[in-house]
Design a binder for these strands. Sequence first.
DNA 1: AAAAATAATTTGGGAAACCAAATAAAAATA
DNA 2: TATTTTTATTTGGTTTCCCAAATTATTTTT
Lengths: 221, 221
Amino acid sequence: MAHFTHHSEENYLKALYKLSYSTVKKVNNTALSQLIGHNPATVLEMVRKLVGKNLVTTLPNKSLKLTPSGEKKALLIIRKHRLWEVFLTEKLNYSWNEVHVLAEQLEHIESNDLVDRLEKYLGFPAVDPHGDTIPDKKGKLKVQESIPLENAVAGKNYRILNLADTNDVFLQYLEKLNIRPGKKIKLVSRNQYDNSVMIMLLKKIIPLSEKVTKNILVEPA
Amino acid sequence: MAHFTHHSEENYLKALYKLSYSTVKKVNNTALSQLIGHNPATVLEMVRKLVGKNLVTTLPNKSLKLTPSGEKKALLIIRKHRLWEVFLTEKLNYSWNEVHVLAEQLEHIESNDLVDRLEKYLGFPAVDPHGDTIPDKKGKLKVQESIPLENAVAGKNYRILNLADTNDVFLQYLEKLNIRPGKKIKLVSRNQYDNSVMIMLLKKIIPLSEKVTKNILVEPA
DNA sequence: AAAAATAATTTGGGAAACCAAATAAAAATA
DNA sequence: TATTTTTATTTGGTTTCCCAAATTATTTTT
């Protein structure tokens, strides 16, 4: 039986992925045990199973690493998690700090097609409510370099990277507002009615229309 | 740990609920084993556990019955199942005959709040895509008085409520004819020879065999 | 009622995920 | 380097949900 094996297995993969990008000096059995809150013996057992499935490798110094296929699996789970989080906040009005627990359950629903449809339904969001980028259906995570300000998250800080429209009027308009690549801003709020936003730049609040936010590329800062 | 115990348990409750409203003469261990596809020994074990939790009782003649609290639990699972089915068809464009498998997974997500919000988001639908009524958040199911189209009266208007056969071929046949729960039809005439009927749907006359009319449930409209 | 058929129950296992406690190995420190 | 501390591994459990095969009711049929 397929059972809910995958449930546990997926949690291990996700944890290993997290650790690999965390500040933990060494991703070993102890670190993994602590993160997922299971006994080291249990963790060892599971890791061996994952090694057997070619999802994880243990380096000579005993630190753990996802194989390419393991990493892909992890990213596909993270994709599900983040898309469900978007759904919960955007459609069901959950606040962004209460969605995590629910998404932990939803991420284990077995159907890639379902998540692909969900993504489409949500309008292909670039980031989840926490501002983390969402891997694509192949498990590729775009390096977070640039997202349109349109898809940015209220309350977060950003650095302006690029302007996607070379129209002169547009550029001069931004210039007057002191908006240009390199500047640091905070997305204060978004108006659901017309998708305009308020940003804060150098202590000043500035309103920007949807058309403008579509053409300002930023990165989290 | 709470684990996924509930997952299996919930399936048993749901199965018992289904059986109690089916045409099965006696809801006993054998019937339950066959419906859920598990070994009789396994089923006996689970039933005993459920009896211990006061969710099921065994009558002196060994037939099984849900207690009030067991039935409520069952109905709350069915509520989740049906609301998720509505979501999948209405929002993610699944066709109504492919949502069942996915809803089987989604119905086990633990959060009543989530389903309540989902219900609100979907506009408090009365029925799922198959035409089955959705229990309310207290586990109450409104009774719908439906009659098979077979027994309907020529010349009267009806609304299709439900389809009594889940056979795929049957469902696809109806799908092609645009016949599904919610549609309004008129019974134009009945052929005494073979008990076939003519119905009118959207100005078009459609013939239906006796076998088909036995499995289409309608209410006067 | 006796035989046959059917249903319920018991018995002995199995796999998956867990754990605590003991031991072995490795790393850090004195 | 010797000692201590930390980490990895082994060993011997546990629980949950599942199975097949044997046994014991219980019903049905003859």
